[in-house]
Nucleic acid binder design. Structure first.
Lengths: 156, 156
DNA sequence: TTCCGGGTCATACTTTAGGGTGATTTTATC
DNA sequence: GATAAAATCACCCTAAAGTATGACCCGGAA
């Protein structure tokens, strides 16, 4: 992409040079035909113009180069910071705080054993919590609990 | 698109050529009017150099401008309702359509057996799909797969 | 004080999920 | 038509999840 642009730019410069040369020759020809004042002066002026134009181009390209390296790639930040717990649903289902904690960790994809480690309790305790949670939420699997929990806004 | 670019570039060149011709003619005209090449040849040459250098700079900047427009800013606010599958991630992970279907049903909280019934395939097939899916997604549990799938926008 | 709900833990058991291997068939793709 | 990828299915085994039951502790309410 960048190399392509550079190539096209060079191409442009060359094209410009060619057209300039053609123009100058055309001028020269016209000059020779109609007004022949100073022969060597025209060549001198033309070459000066050519050289300094190319110098200007080169200078500008050289100076503008660092300016063009603005490559910005922005990705999403996974918004959803605005989570408010649906306390009514929680109360309606009779889900306790601890059970909600378990549900949250379930949603993160943790196993019962990992949840036990996270909450500093035994595996059996987590199992008890999850069992009661499933009963209260009227589901039979952790995946269902997570899905329903997200739907009822018990978890983000 | 490409033809258009080329045309506009050529247009630029032609425009430049025209302006160059005009400038040269103007110079010629000035020359004829005041006859400056006798005593101030240096001034003449210097002004030519100056004019054409700035012309070159201007030209180069003009041509370099479209290069700066290649900046693509991708901002996502994650509205929620409009789900668009992240095909890049799917391709990057090598997740097939069928595996995505299984993942979707997993996210709904269905068991492997239920997924098998939904897709009219055997339980073993679902297991194979899920196994490959987990391998590709680099997870080890369905809950993790669902969580990561939602995060990478493979599923709503 | 008694009672109850929440939290803790344990044991035993069943079900589901997941890993590994191998095979066949369909479907693109070159 | 050969090749590769996807989809299908089976069997075996282990790990994890889920069910059932019982027990203990603790703090607040009746």
């Amino acid at each position: 992409m960048i190399a392509g642009n550079f190539f096209s730019k060079n191409k442009m410069v060359l094209l410009y040079g060619a057209s300039l040369a053609i123009l100058l020759f055309l001028l020269k020809w016209l000059e020779l035909r109609f007004i022949i004042y100073d022969y060597s002066f025209e060549i001198y002026a033309g070459s000066i113009a050519l050289i300094f134009t190319s110098l200007g181009i080169w200078l500008a390209l050289k100076l503008a180069k660092p300016k063009m390296q603005t490559v910005i790639v922005e990705r999403e930040v996974y918004a959803g910071a605005d989570f408010i717990l649906n306390a009514k649903e929680q109360a309606a289902l009779g889900v306790s705080k601890r059970e909600l904690e378990v549900l949250e960790l379930m949603a993160e994809g943790l196993s019962n054993d990992e949840i036990a480690g996270r909450l500093f309790v035994s595996l059996n305790t987590v199992k008890t919590h999850s069992s009661k949670l499933f009963e209260k939420m009227e589901v039979s699997r952790r995946t269902q609990a997570v899905e329903k929990g997200k739907r009822l806004r018990l978890i983000p």
